[in-house]
Structure formats: structure tokens, C-alpha cells
Write a protein that binds this DNA or RNA. Structure first.
Lengths: 210, 210
DNA sequence: GCGGCCATCAACCGAATGGCTGATGGCGGG
DNA sequence: CCCGCCATCAGCCATTCGGTTGATGGCCGC
């Protein structure tokens, strides 16, 4: 069987270097190219048609998530294997929804990584154990209560210390409406006041992503 | 001049591999060993006496910060170069206070990394530009305002949605005292209400570390 | 030993908050 | 076609917050 061709996408030279070294010194793999951001990744993937794209999610200039979405949209053949540093619950699900074939942590030992790439090339979904367990538990819980758009917006302003009245002004709605939204937020997050709501917001990744 | 001897500390095999590859293929460096956590790092540094320790800060099992503190305490000769993925304001200052000789981002190009190691070996402080500018601005601001123990404690309870009265009960103090603490917290964090204080708490890493 | 910071407490007051009940209109799924 | 969810608004009311002023005692550093 021909080598599995790879495209490495990561903003850190060190990481790209490490990956390239690992795959070049192992039989059965060919590194076609490296990309440092999502835009480059999409271009190179379209041009070089690799079997597998190893992609970091967090990168400056065109996030990995957007890149995956774009690759899927263009119907590109390459399988995308997300290779990330940490597995934040907020990242895993969207990435897989966007079309990623697998999700690995960089902590993974080499063997696991090699194996994952082979699996991905064959079209099989590969998840690192940590991610897998996270996924099932995420599926198990019906819906951790995603806030409605307006509710999130209000919560963000609350986190900035904005009073109800000023939130009303800022969003061009009445103070009564702000209070209604907030009540819903409290209910959905299972808290009793705005301070706790902000805390929950951070814990659940609703807030905090600059 | 003899080679500069290195100890690589990072919990990710990929990163260690990348670093090892880079330094072994460049003249003037010798990689003595690798460690995957802070405890190992201290042991190996004590045993092998490297010139420079390249250390990631965030690692499971004995954080990098503790490792640096311990190395400094033991008066070990090695210079510690912190090599981290992102530069969160909460990490840089403590690391340098703990005795790190330098602070680099993994984004740094190879040349800069090599140069930084040489500088560190010579005992000079090296900071990546991003970190350096962050430092000066941190110094410029009078005091990032670390909360007093009691104040932090109160803030934590506030984040859990506890009312002033209940905080008072929980800490065996009067409600008046709770309010006083909170007022101080607001002033120190530069916010106006408890919700914003919680937000700041998360942003500044005071809250959120489970 | 004086000033600064921490921790504690008190009383007062105006404003903001949160709970409740109730109402309207739009939109989408079954 | 009705139900549920979103988004909007209103009024009432008890509670809670946050600001202010003022005070005490302990501890640390100069």
C-alpha cells in the first residue's frame, strides 16, 4: 500500500517539527506540507490532496474550526484529524460536528498517533479515550442548557458589571425584558443570582472566550 | 566551548520530541534527558546538573511553577527557561519571581530559541517580546491587586451565588464585615458589582482553578 | 512607635435586584 | 392548528446590595 500522505497544520514551529520528525522517521507516511494557520491549511489541502490533515484547533488567523468547516464544505477528500493540546468540552463537539474524523490529544503516545492516522485514512473515527468518555457523557446529559442568543448577550453585559437599566439601554429593550431574560438565565443555569450566573457562564465556556 | 547541556521538561511527547530534534541537529547543544513532569524535572536536574532546563509551565503532577521554586530553593546551578504555549499574565510573573531566567513562547522561531538558550546559559535574562511588553506594562500598573486571603474567600462564595448574609454565616463573621471585604474586592478589581467581580476573578485566574 | 494593611464590626440609606403574575406576537415542529 | 420557545413589555414588592462613615485590634516593617 502506498504511503499515507499528510498535511500538518499547527501554528507552532516546534510542534510541526516534532510531528514531521515523527512521521518521517516512521514507515508508511509522507509529509506533503505544513501550514501555520487555517487559511493556509485549506489552500494546501485543496492543492495537494493529502490523505489526512493533522490539525491544531487553536491558531491565530483562521481558526481550525473554520478550516474544518471549509474543507467539509468544499467536499475535500482529506480526513481531518484534530490534534489538540487540551480537550476543552467546548472544542470537541463543534470540531466533530464540523466534519473532523478524529480528535486526539497531543499527550498521546506515538503509537497511538500513528495508529490514529491510519484509522483516519481508512475513514474510521478515532477518538482519544479522554475525548471519547467526554463525548458520551456529553451525549448522556440531555442539554446542559444552551442559552438563547439574547440571554447570552445579557449575561455578557452582566459579567461586565452593567446594571439592568444600562443593559436595557444598550440593547434597546425595556428593563422589564432584561429582567425576564435574566430570570430565564438563572433558571437555565440553575443559579439564584447574577454573580453565580457569571461564574457558571465561565465554567461552562459561555463566557470567557475573548 | 563545550556544548550547552539541556534538560527538556514537557508533558507532551510530541513537544519533547520536537525540541530534542531541534537541539540535536544543531551544533553546540546536548540534550541530557527529558522529564514529563515537575517532580521528574527536579530529580533529573539535581542528578544531571544541566546548564539549562527548558520547562513547560502547565503539566499534570507537579506544576512547572513548583518545580522552579524547588530548584531555586535547592540552589541548583541550572538556569530555567520557561517555554510555554501561551503567555497568560497569571503565569509569567510568578514564574519569573520563582526564579526562571527566561520566558519564551513556543511560537518562537528556532533561531530565537537557540539564542535564548545560549543567553540563559550565560545567565542573562531572556524574554520573548510579547512577554517583555507584558511585563513592563505589569510593572507600570501600581499593583495588579492580589486579593487578601479573606477577600478571595468571600469572592469565591459570591461566585457560588451565596448572599452576604449566608457568607457571613459560613465564615462566622458579621454581614457588615462581608460587605467591607466585598467593597475592598470591588476597589481592587476595579469593578462596581459582584457579578463583574466574579468575571474579573475568572479573567485573572483568581477563580476557576478547580 | 507610627503608618499601612488586614480583619473585624455598626448603622443608615438609596438604589438595584429578583420573584411573581400576566400579557403579546412571531416562529417552527408535530 | 396548537404548543413550546423566544423576545418583548408591565407592575408590585420584599430583599439584597453597595456606598459611606466611623471604629477597634493585630501584625509587620521601617
Amino acid at each position: 500500500m502506498a504511503d499515507i500522505s499528510l498535511l500538518l497544520v499547527d501554528d507552532h514551529p516546534v510542534v510541526r517539527n516534532g510531528l514531521r520528525g515523527m512521521f518521517e522517521s516512521a514507515p508508511g507516511f509522507t509529509v506533503l506540507a505544513e501550514a501555520a494557520n487555517g487559511v493556509e491549511a485549506v489552500e494546501l489541502a485543496a492543492e495537494l490532496d493529502p490523505d489526512v490533515v493533522l490539525m491544531d484547533l487553536r491558531m491565530p488567523g483562521g481558526s481550525g474550526l473554520d478550516a474544518i468547516t471549509e474543507l467539509t464544505r468544499r467536499g475535500i477528500r482529506a480526513k481531518v484529524l484534530v490534534l489538540t493540546t487540551w480537550d476543552t468540552d467546548t472544542d470537541t463537539l463543534p470540531a466533530i460536528e464540523a466534519g473532523a474524523t478524529g480528535y486526539l490529544l497531543k499527550d498521546a503516545p506515538q503509537d497511538e498517533l500513528f495508529n490514529a492516522v491510519r484509522q483516519a485514512a481508512a475513514g474510521r473515527t478515532v477518538l482519544s479515550p479522554a475525548v471519547a468518555s467526554r463525548l458520551v457523557s456529553a451525549v448522556r446529559s440531555p442539554a446542559p442548557s444552551p442559552l438563547a442568543a439574547r440571554e447570552r448577550q445579557v449575561l455578557e453585559l452582566v459579567a461586565k458589571g452593567t446594571s439592568n437599566r444600562d443593559i436595557a439601554r444598550e440593547l434597546f429593550i425595556s428593563e422589564a425584558t432584561v429582567k425576564t431574560h435574566l430570570s430565564h438565565v438563572f433558571t437555565k443555569l440553575g443559579v439564584a443570582d447574577r454573580a453565580a450566573a457569571v461564574a457558571k457562564g465561565y465554567e461552562q465556556g459561555i463566557l470567557g472566550r475573548d
